[in-house]
Simulated scan of single mutants.
Amino acid sequence: MLALGTSAQTVACVFVYGLPYLSPELREANGLSLAEVGLIVACPTVGLVLTLVAWGALADKYGERIVIASGLAATTVLLALASAPHGLVTLGALFALAGAASASVYAASGRLVIGWFSARERGLAMGIRQTSTPLGMGIAALAVPSLAEWTGLTGTIVFAAALCGTVAVLVGVCAADPPRPADPAADGSGADNPYRRPELWRIHASSALLCVPQFTASAFGLVFLVEVRGWSPVHAGQLLALAQVLGALSRVVAGRWSDRVGSRVRPMRRLSLGIAAVMAATALGAVWPSPLSDVAMIIACGITASTNGLAFTATAELAGRAWSGRAMGVQNTGQNLTASLTPPLLGGFIGAVGYGWGFALAAAVAGAAALIVPTGRRPAAVRPAATGGRPAAARQGE
């Protein structure tokens, strides 16, 4: 189930977060400014943000399998339509609708992890599941520049559609929803509203802020390497694919770290400070370009992805089972809203003042996120498995 959920989100990310690797093609073929390219790149995440809560409600009612499979099937159809020649407005609208359909994966695949894994394993499991984003970006970094060079936009979009369609069939045939308790009272339904306390709000806010450096590096890393450092789009994509592998590993290591120390927030705070330092080094590399600039960009693309799994795990554990679905919907919405706004806003900012100041701003945002992460120790609950082999939910304070 973990493999299926991770695969589903990986192929969705190839489309949703792989569009930045089409930036050179969009600029050359259509004469777009960097801000306009950022707007097209943001279309899928705009659609995704608007539908996350609705998909989450459907997962609550009908289960994870049908939601993931139907959402990926709809994404496949919409991408197939987008592969035909269109104007930029129509293309952006189809990308937004496909992003809205792919939101099913973001709403439901995390619930598979929460449902099938106990709290003492959940940090590692969620870290593995969260590797889907850098893995999807890595696949895109390897495939998209070459496909764009040989087949243009059409071949690249068809590639993404084929991936989504294949995994939709696999999920529909092979996936199984996690067991649900027969007694709602045993599921924590009477728990207090976790939003009456500040910890959950702080997790949402800090993780949303940490999306700024992550999507600054991912959206503009390839363009930076091509325009400032003189790399070809294909070779720059290959370099950033290596960075995405590092990003995937960083999420797994961070999840395992949180399981061992019994806290999600302590590793999250320390990694936020590390992200701020690395983005500051990337800013310096943009001002004084050298081979070290390339190294800094690789590290930035890797480490900026490290906190996502921690934030989602902390959200579920702080909210408790009665509120985890709604809380993870809010968490997803905040992160993806920031992800959708970062490319166009940072694109305009970088276009006005340069890459150095843009990367420096991302470093400052990461530093602010480190200050917002809750300081109280929230242990990863180590609770025996529930009767019948079902893992017990982690409740706040356990």
Rank of each mutant, 00 (worst) to 15 (best):
A368K: 07
A283L: 11
Y355H: 12
R180G: 02
T51W: 07
S189N: 15
T154K: 07
P198D: 12
G348N: 03
M137K: 06
R269L: 00
A119R: 06
L292P: 00
A243H: 07
G5P: 05
V171M: 05
A168T: 08
V169K: 10
V278C: 00
G123Q: 13
I40H: 04
A108G: 05
A362C: 07
Q214C: 07
T131R: 05
F312D: 08
A161Q: 01
V253D: 08
V223Y: 08
V365P: 02
G230I: 00
W357F: 11
A217Q: 02
Q238H: 13
A286C: 07
A392T: 04
A42F: 10
G123F: 01
A319S: 11
L249C: 13
G325E: 11
I350V: 14
N193V: 12
G56K: 06
S306F: 09
F224W: 04
T307R: 02
L225G: 06
L239I: 10
W150S: 13
G31F: 13
A93W: 14
V14Y: 03
S109L: 02
F159I: 03
I299Q: 02
A339T: 14
A236C: 04
L292F: 12
L2H: 01
L337F: 15
V144T: 14
G309C: 07
R326A: 09
G247V: 00
A96S: 10
F159S: 01
G358Q: 03
A148F: 03
A300Q: 02
T133A: 11
L210N: 03
R120T: 14
A96G: 11
G92Y: 02
V252G: 08
W257F: 15
T76M: 07
G71L: 06
F95A: 10
A217W: 05
V234W: 01
L91Y: 13
I114L: 13
L310G: 02
L58R: 02
A84W: 15
L39Y: 07
L249M: 14
A363Q: 06
G31K: 11
N308I: 13
P291G: 10
D192Q: 15
A3D: 00
A12K: 01
L34G: 04
P267R: 00
L225P: 00
A381K: 05
P198L: 14
I139S: 00
A107Y: 08
P181F: 04
L310Q: 01
E149R: 12
V46R: 00
P344C: 09
T282M: 14
R395N: 08
R229P: 00
H235Q: 12
G71M: 02
V265G: 04
G274M: 07
R390N: 05
V212Y: 07
L48W: 10
A368C: 15
L147Q: 01
A392P: 04
D187I: 05
L112A: 11
F224K: 03
T90W: 15
A103V: 10
P379Q: 05
A217L: 06
T166K: 10
A141Q: 12
P344R: 04
D294C: 07
Q396E: 15
A141N: 13
A59M: 08
A73S: 12
G285C: 08
L249W: 13
T333K: 08
P343W: 07
A186V: 03
L72V: 03
A182Q: 14
F224D: 00
G397I: 05
F224Y: 14
A175V: 09
A119F: 12
G320V: 02
V330D: 03
L142Q: 06
G247K: 03
